[in-house]
Design a protein around this nucleic acid. Structure first.
Lengths: 193, 193
DNA sequence: ACAAATTTAGAACAATTGTTCTAAATTTGT
DNA sequence: ACAAATTTAGAACAATTGTTCTAAATTTGT
């Protein structure tokens, strides 16, 4: 692992632990035992560090979405796979989810990338639901518009569960994965057959 | 309106416009034409300004929840009233919703207040749903646990719709209230009779 | 009307921040 | 082995920040 990768890995760790408000590049450099000058030799601006981390998250999503190419699995199995895969990313890149609006305002490239990602995922999910509706595993009488709105709602729940959990759940010691799984299941419940 | 109220009103305006990352107390003072020293005479710490604004939001919720004491209205009417009332607050105190995790980590008093508020709203909503289930306007075969999970899901959608809209909707010129209304309706849809 | 309390502006402070610059140390390619 | 390229540490810079201090201005109560 070279210095650049070490910076990313340490920054991710510290941002997840402390949030982005109070963390400085100097602190990141100090905690990993290099000079601030050296850190800024590898990443000229703080934004570059965060953007780099965001790209890792995006790559993670890309990889996860490609996984279930093997059709034929039951909808339940597919859903559980998505839930598991999403959770791993939400947990790993927690600070991005928890500070998403601020990060998007601060680094517009990230907002643009996210919009593209959502549009892409939206299409994939809608066509997937329609496929499983034909197979009798998903309610089929739902108009396309309603299906799209359901997907939008799903994104809100999935992308901001982490924010809600940070404020409500973490202190109460609720198991995060189990809480996420149930939250997503609750959203799907009325649509499954 | 005395200086203290002017500071609150100006701070709210500026935070909603620019977010909390880049806004300074000096900027707030300058934009409203008073000295930074004067601002800090009224609010010793920046946190005090934000906490004060949060308390206004809380008071707004309190007021909204008390409104529909007149039972007997149809569930649809009640729901529309809640949607309207919630939206006004979400819009007015936008920056709090959009930076909620960060604000809660920064000012723990706010997190604690929010947790109490959620618990209170949770109980009220569950008993309300059960009341309307008896009246035949809400699905009645749902176990209590599932009802509670549905309410949790509802809070995520309602409290973080604003964050999602900030990143996805605002640029596309979608009407915010209409978008919020449909999002909440989509969540309720499968539970209505 | 006038003493006391409150409010205000502006200077000052102390700490911090992201980033750049420079020179030394280290690594790489041949 | 040695020149060139890369990496590193640490000083330095310039700007900013929240907050405090002081003295003047204004308001309030009697």
């Amino acid at each position: 692992m070279n210095t650049k990768e070490k910076i990313i890995s340490e920054a991710l760790k510290i941002y997840n632990r402390d949030g982005i408000r109070t963390v400085t590049t100097r602190q990141i450099a100090q905690e990993m035992g290099i000079s601030a000058g050296n850190l800024h030799y590898h990443f000229k601006h703080t934004e570059d560090i965060i953007f780099h981390i965001f790209q890792l998250l995006e790559a993670g999503y890309e990889k996860m979405i490609l996984l279930p190419e093997k059709r034929g699995v039951s909808f339940q199995q597919l859903l559980d796979g998505f839930i598991q895969g999403s959770y791993v990313l939400i947990d790993k890149y927690r600070f991005i989810f928890e500070n998403f609006v601020e990060i998007c305002n601060w680094i517009p490239r990230i907002a643009e990338s996210y919009r593209r990602l959502v549009e892409q995922r939206e299409g994939q999910l809608v066509s997937l639901f329609m496929y499983y509706a034909d197979g009798g595993m998903f309610r089929s009488e739902i108009p396309l518009l309603n299906l799209k709105r359901f997907v939008r709602q799903l994104f809100i729940v999935s992308d901001f569960w982490s924010s809600s959990y940070a404020v409500l759940g973490r202190q109460q010691g609720i198991d995060p994965f189990e809480d996420y799984r149930q939250t997503i299941h609750t959203a799907f419940y009325p649509y499954l057959l």
